[in-house]
Design a protein around this nucleic acid. Structure first.
Lengths: 323, 323
DNA sequence: GTCAAACGTTTGTCTTGGACATTTACAAAA
DNA sequence: TTTTGTAAATGTCCAAGACAAACGTTTGAC
């Protein structure tokens, strides 16, 4: 994920640092490269939108290169955010920034969170790192790894993501949260790890899917059930997944898809991977994106909730009982 | 975005899925987007080199779009790797892949690796995950966290990076290695953590710098010395770093720069960050890129080796003794 | 009423070649 | 030695056109 704040002070030049700004103008004007990084929209897209929709309308510097003022960048960011949720640019590019923000917060519904989650969000917002660590640890101990994951980590991660997307969290706040959870989960996983008990599950995600926490949550659930995990981290291309599953003699390949991942791409990717994977290797797909998929995919198990994982492992074992 | 029906399998399309490859040719032909990702050279650069140096010379698909065969991609990767070490494209673009590799290994010295490192590389290459885990753990126990890091993890990570860049390691092999080390280090860090002892060190990297392991190594070294770490993970924009250091009342901001990071950019970025950070906050910069910098930067401590960190912490404490 | 195939629209990526800003390398001057 | 200048090198940006893939909607079948 990316940026949060709007009045991004510097990074006027492509590489991300303030150009010395010879003629001492605002430090908030972004070059097209900087805008690309700040918005997540490629240069080609930025130029294309300008041509097609007449937005953005960047200023030009003395050599006729685009310069994006902060308000346009903010609007671009808001648009990108909504697009990740499924909106299409043409429909929303004409709206005002306020309208865009309203559109973004409405459907999520503010008060979905329980008080525990709210309390932790507050710790993050107030930068109380020791308290945050302690609280998370306490919850882990009290709830046990599995309940901790689906009662605390999962909703909390969603809440943090939402808050970030609404501009309520700074980039660094979201990153710090991610680091803490990662540390906690990796520790728990290491302690819970058993040895060489089937099924052997290869865990990863497709390229452009960078959501590490999702994978870690799954790994934790699996480890508790005594499965053996081969974690590859995120963003492995399909052919590499096939090679890796052969090299590690995986029984199952499990993929994670965050909410931002395009559904269609998930479907295509899964079908394709299924076709290239040996028949005897199971293929499981989970994550917010999969939860939205309507149709089932032949030969692919769609995991719609974390709780389901235990059952899946048990089923696998039942089917491969005597080996 | 994707082209599916072009016979461009393997990451041929931007999103990373194999086109079904009806006419079963190589699984390794890359589109320009894929080549960009695989080589780290921007599309513009790929096209410009083609125009200027007549290399690369990609094939064309039926719609006249560039298709890069694996050997050209390998050569591009080799060139990029040498450029990261300071070579200039014009000088080396004419050389053969073998020459490039020779050029690359010579200065580093092929046989710099000791036998321990070689043995571990072999475990990775042979996909012996349990043995790898066990061996790393054993070394950690035997050497202690600090020696483990600069005698094992650091050289091993370099070796894995080199091997990957030379095409000797697959993507998934490198990722699996990274995951294992990450798990190990995060565990060690969690165990060694003490509470609220100064200095408070904020750890992160600039945007485009994604090397997690470097940061984890530093964090481990710091934790052993009893410092308090605020790990933000990678890729935080400069203004966010400033805000975060204020929010967490950091005494020191420490940044990591991998070998691939452009020296000039590191310099500019550091100077700029220094200017925006309060005087009383120290700024430390480390990593392979920093090691190459000649000139010192005013108000920035250039950390040229991991071993140095202990001294730095001690120095800081001496200077802030009574607080 | 549900599913699926077929169509039009929308959208993003790729193409070309030119222009020029920014670096780097090297030589001359202080 | 360090600084400054200049030429060569290298990368980024621009424009407009083309078109494949994604999306949504309508139509047709069961």
């Amino acid at each position: 994920m990316d940026k949060t704040e709007v009045a991004v002070p510097d990074r006027a030049n492509p590489k991300g640092f303030v150009a010395p700004a010879p003629n001492a103008n605002d430090a908030t004007l972004l070059s097209i490269s900087a805008a690309e990084r700040d918005t997540g929209l490629s240069k080609d897209v930025l130029r294309m939108w300008e041509r097609r929709y007449r937005f953005p309308k960047p200023l030009r510097d003395k050599h006729d290169e685009r310069i994006y003022p902060p308000d346009q960048v903010a609007k671009l960011r808001a648009i990108k955010r909504l697009m990740d949720r499924g909106f299409r640019p043409g429909k929303i590019i004409g709206l005002s920034l306020d309208d865009l923000n309203a559109l973004g917060s409405a459907p999520t519904g503010g008060p979905t969170h329980d008080s525990k989650v709210e309390a932790i969000l507050l710790l993050i917002r107030n930068h109380q790192l020791p308290e945050l660590r302690q609280r998370l640890n306490q919850l882990l101990m009290r709830q046990g790894l599995q309940r901790f994951i689906f009662e605390t980590v999962a909703p909390l991660t969603t809440a943090v993501g939402d808050a970030w997307v609404r501009g309520e969290f700074a980039v660094f706040e979201e990153h710090l949260y991610t680091e803490q959870i990662q540390s906690l989960l990796r520790n728990a996983i290491a302690s819970a790890q058993t040895h060489n008990k089937p099924p052997r599950v290869l865990l990863t995600s497709f390229p452009t899917e960078q959501h590490k926490l999702g994978l870690l949550m799954v790994e934790a659930m699996l480890v508790v059930d005594g499965a053996t995990c081969i974690p590859l981290g995120t963003e492995i291309p399909a052919p590499e997944i096939v090679r890796a599953s052969a090299a590690h003699r995986a029984d199952v390949v499990a993929l994670s898809f965050s909410a931002a991942y395009p559904e269609r791409q998930a479907g295509t990717g899964l079908r394709h991977l299924r076709a290239h994977l040996p028949r005897e290797v199971d293929l499981w797909a989970g994550g917010a994106c999969v939860r939205r998929l309507r149709k089932s995919i032949d030969g692919v198990v769609l995991v719609r909730s974390l709780e389901q994982i235990g059952t899946l492992v048990a089923d696998w074992r039942a089917a491969h009982g005597e080996e």
